[in-house]
Design a protein around this nucleic acid. Sequence first.
DNA 1: GTTAGCACTCGACGAACGAGAGTGCTAACA
DNA 2: TGTTAGCACTCTCGTTCGTCGAGTGCTAAC
Lengths: 338, 338
Amino acid sequence: MREAGVDARKKRILQAIIEDYVLTALPVGSRTISRKYETSLSSATIRNEMSDLEEMGYLAQPHVSAGRVPSHKAYRLYVDGLLQGEVRADEEMKAFFADQLRPTEDVATAAAQALAGLTRYTAVVMMPKQLELRVSCLQLVPMPRGAALLVIVTDTGAIRDTVIRVSERLDSDALFSISRLLTERLAGRTLQEVQEMLGAYARMNGPDARVLEGIAALAAQMEKQSAQDTVIIAGSHNILNYPEYSDVEKARAFLTALEEKEKLTHLLSHHDAPFMVHIGSESAISDMQDCAIVTAGFPVGRGHRGAVGVIGPSRMPYEKVLSALGAASHVLGELLGE
Amino acid sequence: MREAGVDARKKRILQAIIEDYVLTALPVGSRTISRKYETSLSSATIRNEMSDLEEMGYLAQPHVSAGRVPSHKAYRLYVDGLLQGEVRADEEMKAFFADQLRPTEDVATAAAQALAGLTRYTAVVMMPKQLELRVSCLQLVPMPRGAALLVIVTDTGAIRDTVIRVSERLDSDALFSISRLLTERLAGRTLQEVQEMLGAYARMNGPDARVLEGIAALAAQMEKQSAQDTVIIAGSHNILNYPEYSDVEKARAFLTALEEKEKLTHLLSHHDAPFMVHIGSESAISDMQDCAIVTAGFPVGRGHRGAVGVIGPSRMPYEKVLSALGAASHVLGELLGE
DNA sequence: GTTAGCACTCGACGAACGAGAGTGCTAACA
DNA sequence: TGTTAGCACTCTCGTTCGTCGAGTGCTAAC
């Protein structure tokens, strides 16, 4: 083995192969490259180079008389090249977001949907778990027919609500007094503490124990939900648009794998670099072997970080996806960071 | 044509064919029926009967040497028979619901998910549009860092909220005073009126016009959403479990058709009988030609009716689906009716 | 180092064919 | 008159075989 390096020309050829394959999903032959990309070289020359690249593990042949297909290693080289450069945030994506800024918790959902819609891939957003959430405000809003909406707001701005039954006698002023009392007593406490305190009260208190029970239940639910990373998925069946998944069994396996969110969470929660790209088997999720997962992190306050990602076939226009992700993570960071 | 009727034996045979076909999705031969169902008759006899049934339009042959497949007309006869009898509400389904009674608006979502999970088909819930919604209460809940959660509750118990920015000077008492004032002025008004009134105020009022604008925007959004029937879909990719959709193109067409909710809405909103079954082309949604849609209505108050439905291949265990739907509509009616 | 030429390989596609499933028809039977 | 056995017939499915074409690797010439 005299020459082990990937020289500039090999790199150009490899890039051409990748770009052609991303477009067509068909093995790329030497003639195609010679015609469409490296017009100054003949197909024979390209063949020699391709042969070298195959030996180095960057290309593979589905069978001997087919063209070449880029390997995971090739995508990796290509993507690393992209990540070296500046990732430019996609302006279209940013504009898309700007229109529908709704600073409630469901920005994450909106972001996932926007990303899935624009990239035509599957998008995921991971919101990290938040331990030790402290109650900031607690309010009962009157509703018709002896009901009330119980709202809990935490110091991080998380909101959760539920409808509870209350005595018909309580009018809106009474509910406000109760709210104020409860907020005074409970503000600054963790959800855990709130549950404990209310458990104690509820056993003593007679008539309006229902309210306290409702609060305890909501606090419990809120604590449970916030104690684990949550993953939001959008555009899951975009995958059906790609020939890689023209087999229903594969598509089903993919969709089922998406439902089991643990692995996805794991992948998304170890996110140090601004962008990460997991290609093929690197992702360690079976049923997603020929997928790539491109992710970007964003701050959500208190030093925690969430992540947003796009899942599609390894054959993916990484540059576009990266810039869309850049825009999404930027906007999410602005909305959800401190 | 001497005898035009479907006598009892023909009916039994037809039923056997349908039930076998529902299980296997394979054309049913005369031998199968003679062996598994009508053991006292020979296959030749069954063949004669099947031939008659085919002539009457109840059966079809994919090709001459295959077994028979029930036609839409056959399903129709079968289903009409079922609908004559009592539809027993599925106890498992009911129990499932009882566990997670959450009387907020997302019961509809929960119902759809439960139904999709238990039937393994696609489930839809339609909530009818509500015109002339009147505000019952309006409340600002303090949030950290100069924000507030604005909650609007209507006389029907519908809730919508959004986060708005407010002056940092406003503490929870101030917000309550504003809430009380606003509720006094606006309670009983329609969402339309609220928007008009606030538009007028906001132009005059200086500093806290933001709050009024926020309310007007939320009222507008709420009015827009409630002015049209909304459809909630769950388990859309359950369809991939059935051989009818082993072709990716078909599956994709189906999923795309689901996204366009107008036709679905139309189908679900004309719901007079307690149960309705649309089979095949009856449903008039292309891309769902070999589907059946089974629906049940439920009351949502004010004389309006919502509907819950299950969409799957025509080959469907109608009895089970009907009883699951019965349970779902019963529970939804109890939670959402007056 | 590059290129033209050529033999070779392998998958896709279509035709031919046998096996198997299921039918319709006829004739015999109760 | 209704039921059944028997049989010829039809059609699909899977297999095999041969052809076509795309694309390669190798060699020799530039």
